[in-house]
Every structure is written in C-alpha cells, then in structure tokens.
C-alpha cells in the first residue's frame, strides 16, 4: 500500500447507470422476486444481478422474470464465491460501484441511497447496530459480535459496529481489488474482506441502516452454535491478521 493511494481523491456522486446491485441467492425463491422488484423501484437505472449460488429451486427463474440479470453458478460456492463472481462482473463491465444486498429481503432497498450518500469511502457498510432500526441479538452471539466489532474496528482504524453485515457498497478501486481477492471462507467474505481492503489502503466507512425482520429463517440463539460461531470469529480474525496481503 502506498501513501498516495490513501489520500487520493475518491470519485463521488456515482452515475446511477453505473451502479451494479448484486444479490447473492441460495434457494430464495420466495423472496428473490420481491427483492429484485424493490431494488429496481428504488434504483431504476441500476443494473440488478442475481448470482444464483447453485439453487435447487426456482430462484433463477423468478429473479429473471422480475427483471434481473441472472448468473447461475454450476455449484454452491458460498456467499464469498458468489460475491467474487459479482465483483468480477462489475469490474469487467466497468461499473463504478457495486452494492451487495441480501436476497432474503432483510435489507431495505430504499436504504441504498444512504450508502451512496457517504463521501470519500471505498467501502461503505450498512450497519444494523449504529443507531437506527431495532435489530438486536442476545447472549453469546452478541458477545461474539461485540468482540469481533471491537477487534475489527481496532484493526481497520474506523468504527465498524456491524462487521458481518451483508449490506455494503463498494466503489471502483475496491471492486477491482475484490474481483481478484475476495475471501470465500466462512466469515471471510465479510470480516476478512474488510481487513484485505484496509491493508490495500482503502477507506472503510459505515452508515446506520434500519433492518427488517427476516422474512424467512431466524438467527440462531442455541448456545453451542453461538460458541462455535465465536470460535470461528476468532479464527477468521486471527487468519485475516496473519495472512499475507494480496500482491
């Protein structure tokens, strides 16, 4: 990383036609159509790409009929792999920015505007815990997320209250980086990606967003699973710290 890169002026105010919205989706046939329509209503000029991560249901068909581009991966790669494919597409087609939105409908497409409004950032995280909305987690999972948030904020030098948020905006320079080096391991796509971006001299910011209740599925509260989660968090952060930065 070079000092000039850190302070280089970051291009603001993206042309909405240069925005790519990527929705990684695995068996989300019940929500994907609605989410695609919401995104298109909120950002009518943006390109919407659904990366179908090996779904066995009608996710791809419903996404396509809702008006999204659909990239079907031949087998399941996980969110990290799906997003890297999305970033690669965005990079190859010269998009100025890529927004990741979950296909399960927990993110409000209208909030993309909030992410776009943040100046001078390469990566903007839509944070669930930074003040707005009433998203809450309790017990060991909460401790794990606290620990993760503290450690990560320390590493990247800016407040990251919701490092595992899958709602983020990535500008051109970070798109180029992520197209090549997007970690695909568990938690890697959210946590390690931030460390990779920081090490490459990119600026990370967060903005509070309101989160909806998940339309299907619930976050786990089982103590054993929370403990495993905590362990994986520690491993993910530890690995991100000691791994060589991508050349």
């Amino acid at each position: 990383m070079t000092a000039e890169d850190v302070h280089a002026p970051v291009l603001r105010r993206i042309d909405p036609a240069e925005l790519l919205v990527v929705l990684p989706a695995l068996n989300e046939q019940d929500s994907v159509g609605r989410v695609v329509r919401e995104v298109r209503a909120a950002q009518p000029e943006a390109t919407v790409l659904v990366v179908d991560d090996g779904s066995t249901d009608a996710t791809a068909e419903r996404a396509a009929s809702a008006g999204a581009l659909v990239m079907r991966l031949p087998f399941n790669l996980g969110v990290g792999g799906a997003m890297r494919a999305g970033y690669r597409y965005g990079h190859d087609r010269g998009f100025a920015a890529v927004v990741q939105v979950d296909a399960d409908g927990q993110h409000d497409a209208a909030e993309i505007e909030q992410l776009l409004a943040v100046p001078d950032a390469d990566v903007v995280i839509g944070s669930r815990f930074a003040g707005r909305g009433e998203y809450a987690v309790r017990g060991p999972r909460r401790w794990a997320m606290r620990l993760l948030s503290r450690t990560l904020s320390g590493i990247v030098g800016t407040a990251v209250t919701d490092p595992t948020s899958g709602f983020r905006l990535v500008h051109r320079r970070a798109v180029a980086l992520f197209a090549e080096h997007y970690p695909e391991e568990y938690l890697g796509d959210t946590v390690e990606a931030l460390v990779v971006a920081h090490r490459a001299g990119l600026t990370i910011r967060q903005v509070p967003v309101a989160m909806r209740v998940r339309s299907c599925g619930r976050a786990s509260t089982d103590p054993v699973r929370s403990a495993v989660y905590l362990l994986r968090v520690v491993v993910a952060v530890g690995l991100a710290m000691v791994r060589r930065a991508p050349r």
Binding site: L73, P74, A85, R88
Partner: peptide
Amino acid sequence: SRRLAEEVGTLTM
C-alpha cells in the same frame, strides 16, 4: 475449481 465455476457462471450468462 471455484474460479472456473465463477467463469462458467459469467460465460453462461
């Protein structure tokens, strides 16, 4: 094989 899967997805599209 992950890279190839991503490429296959893009090319199929």
